[in-house]
Amino acid sequence: MRISCPHCGERALDEFSYLGDASVTRPDPAAADAADAFYTYAYERRNIAGPTQELWYHQAGCHAWLVVTRDTRTHEISDVKAAQDVALERVNSTTGAA
């Protein structure tokens, strides 16, 4: 498999390490249901046959965390974004809403 790092370009799989589901985000630790929310966040995962969003780390490259959209049936990668950009968007939209 090859992943196109948005910073470094296309690289072989062995430069990256995998973390897991990028569709979940760290819950609010101050929320009343924090215990349940963190449990779900840490352990509960869907096993999707199709496109998934995953966190990968460019370990041997620029040390960027990436959000990779990969189809688990074909390994086809349709999109790669810098995780920081995705996260900033998330943070800004939350701030904007509040």
Partner: peptide, 18 residues
């Protein structure tokens, strides 16, 4: 050492990018 740096980068880039 490597694991902790990876963890720090995750916290910085993904959890608290601000």
């Amino acid at each position: 050492a490597i694991k902790v740096v990876q963890h720090m980068e995750l916290c910085k880039q993904w959890h608290w990018p601000d």
